[in-house]
């Protein structure tokens, strides 16, 4: 859906010094992806996004949106995307609905269609009751929601969100996350840049990490973790008088149990390594139920997921 080839942006340079903001980046975002675009401040995230939306023109290289080159067919490319900027600006003197109708007009909607669409979108972002309020009265959270609605007017194939949850309260973050998931379920590819790593971890199936204009890594979070040596694991420790070969053999037959290791003398007991994707709470319940009558008990439950923050720090520091 989004393919870039050596996309580059250099600022300035005519008189003053030039700044290489985006340096030969190659990216590929597939259909139905929720792609997280991560990087420290000034890494080139917003510049890249603005090239996708043709707010900025690339210095060199190409980017394709749904197969359309953004410099050769910018208008078609723009019809395919919905864009929510980090700091959404509106015509504050307009009513929210009128602002949406204004954006609808660019896509050739009829008057009636625009009206219906604006109403629909205000409902979609949970602001139906504020349709006829002037934008100048809106809070930051409401402006963010209106921005999402504005990005959605053309029912885009790709939604590009620049820091969509920045500055929102926990409730806001939660509802935004749910809205994004819902939009993705409805076949919309999401490209989002964010500083909120836990959100990215929860939402995105794929991340790209950018620093100083260069792409450092693009992959799923798990693959990246493995590459930099951050393993994910879930394990349970069992102990008790009733532990015997027979019991251990029985445990091995329980679904979800991958392996049983003997612990050191000091730690005592055995460690059960659990298969990926198993709900640890459920497994613990099953084990408890079956083992307690054999005088074996769960002494510890450990779960370690690859930490995106750690991953991010490792990768960006490495660069």
């Amino acid at each position: 859906m989004i393919v870039t080839n050596k996309l580059t942006k250099v600022y300035g340079g005519f008189f003053g010094s030039s700044v290489l903001a985006v340096d030969n980046i190659d990216l590929e975002v597939d259909r139905k992806d929720i792609f997280g675009f991560l990087g420290p401040n000034g890494a080139g995230k917003t510049t890249t996004i603005h090239m996708f939306t043709t707010v900025l023109e690339p210095t060199s290289g190409t980017a394709e949106i749904c197969g359309y080159d953004i410099t050769k067919s910018p208008l078609i490319a723009k019809r395919k995307i919905g864009f929510m900027p980090e700091m959404p600006g509106f015509y504050d003197w307009l009513k929210a609905e009128d602002q949406l109708k204004f954006y609808c007009d660019f896509y050739g909607y009829s008057r009636q269609e625009s009206k219906t669409r604006a109403k629909e979108l205000m409902e979609l972002v949970g602001m139906g009751e504020f349709r006829n309020r002037k934008i100048k009265t809106f809070s930051h959270g409401m402006r963010k929601r209106l921005a999402l609605a504005s990005a959605m007017v053309n029912d885009p194939e790709i939604l590009i969100l620049d820091e969509p949850m920045g500055g929102l309260d926990p409730m806001g973050v939660h509802s935004f996350r749910e809205m994004i998931k819902e939009l993705n379920r409805n076949d919309i590819t999401i490209f989002l840049s964010s500083h909120l790593l836990p959100e990215v971890q929860q939402l995105c199936n794929k991340v790209g990490i950018i620093n100083r204009g260069k792409i450092l890594a693009v992959d799923t979070i798990d693959n990246l973790s493995r590459k930099v040596g951050l393993e994910s694991f879930t394990r349970l420790t069992i102990d008790g008088k009733g532990l015997s070969e027979k019991v251990l053999d029985f445990i091995k037959t329980i679904p979800g149990v991958a392996e049983i290791r003997v612990n050191s003398q000091r730690e005592r007991g055995y460690t059960i390594i659990v298969n990926e994707g198993i709900d640890i709470q459920d497994l613990a319940g099953v084990l408890n139920e079956k083992l307690v009558k054999r005088d074996v008990y769960l002494s510890r439950l450990e779960q370690a997921k690859p930490n995106l923050e750690e991953l991010f720090m490792k990768i960006t520091r490495g660069s």
């Binding site: 989004i2 259909r31 394709e64 909607y109 053309n154």
Partner: peptide
């Protein structure tokens, strides 16, 4: 690759009017 996929997978979504030609905009 994306361009090929697009033609078969994505139905013409989005706003009405001005239908895009596959070759790009005239």
């Amino acid at each position: 690759m994306e361009a090929e996929k697009k033609s078969e997978e994505t139905p013409e979504k989005g706003a009405p009017a001005v239908k895009a030609k596959e070759s790009g905009e005239t």
